[in-house]
Simulated scan of single mutants.
Amino acid sequence: MSNTLVLDVDGTLVDTNYHHAVAWFRAFRRFDLTVPTWKLHRAIGMGGDKLVAAVAGQRVEDELGDGIRKAWEAAFEPMLAEVRPLEGAHRLVSAALEQDFAVVLASSGKRHHVDHYVKLIDAQGVVSTSSDDVEESKPAPDLIEVALSRVDSGGRAVVIGDSVWDCDAARRAGLPVVCLRTGGFGEAELREHGASAVYEELDQLRADLTDLPMA
């Protein structure tokens, strides 16, 4: 049975977290709402279905949530061409496949964004999931559970992410998690949310592939 890597995408394989924070800031401004960018950054990693209420309250979600999400999509789309893979993303995926890991991408992003990122990191053929595949995004465990259902996950698995939301989703799915600092979260808070190891960059994690915690 194969060991499985469940890989987050935004902030883990591609450098998008700050683009997303700016896009959300502009989306809220379309409705004359100002949410500080630092607060938005702290919420990146949870899906858009959760983010509006998390940063602006349930009343804003109830009254304006769908409109803000549409405005976010419109604000983020022009930035898509600026997105670059994080250093080592392709090498990590390639090394995992060469070492007979099952690899699946579990992203809270939109499907066409995920498809674009898969091309950027040259991971064609790797199974991926997106927010379009589930009713609830991270920190709910749904994305991880759907991801595992799409690969031969009869062996052991570990989640790799960059945010506290990845950690929370992994815990709820009953899986260990290791994290990267590439999303902008601190090592201490990632460990507090359950990360058993925290890496500065993907190549460091790649060097430890065979020693990752699995469950």
Rank of each mutant, 00 (worst) to 15 (best):
A173Y: 04
H113I: 03
S130H: 07
E135L: 12
E145F: 02
L143E: 02
K138M: 06
D122K: 14
G161M: 08
V126S: 01
S153E: 06
C167Y: 07
E135D: 13
S163E: 06
A170D: 03
D162R: 09
S130C: 14
D152W: 10
P139F: 04
R172Q: 13
D122T: 09
L120V: 04
A147T: 12
D168H: 08
G161E: 06
V127I: 10
V151G: 02
D162S: 11
L120H: 06
E135T: 14
D122F: 03
D115T: 12
A157P: 13
S130L: 13
S137R: 14
I144T: 06
K138I: 01
V126L: 03
D122R: 15
A157L: 00
V114F: 06
Q124R: 15
V158I: 08
V118N: 06
A123P: 01
S131M: 11
A170Y: 13
C167R: 07
T129A: 01
S130P: 13
D166S: 09
A157V: 01
K119S: 13
A157D: 05
C167I: 02
V159L: 01
G154W: 10
A123F: 01
K138F: 03
K138T: 00
D132R: 13
S153A: 15
S131D: 02
A123N: 00
S163Q: 10
I144W: 08
E145Q: 14
A157Y: 01
S137E: 11
D132V: 03
D133L: 09
P141H: 04
R156P: 04
S131K: 10
L148S: 06
I144V: 15
V146F: 05
V151F: 09
G125A: 02
I121G: 03
D132Q: 12
I160G: 07
Q124V: 13
D166L: 05
S153T: 09
R171V: 13
A123L: 00
A170P: 14
V127Q: 12
A123G: 00
S128H: 15
H112P: 14
A140C: 10
S128I: 02
V164F: 05
S128K: 08
H112A: 05
V114K: 08
D162M: 08
V134F: 12
D152K: 13
I121F: 05
A173R: 04
I160F: 04
D168C: 03
K119L: 08
V146H: 03
D122Q: 15
A157N: 03
R150T: 08
G125C: 01
A157T: 05
K119V: 08
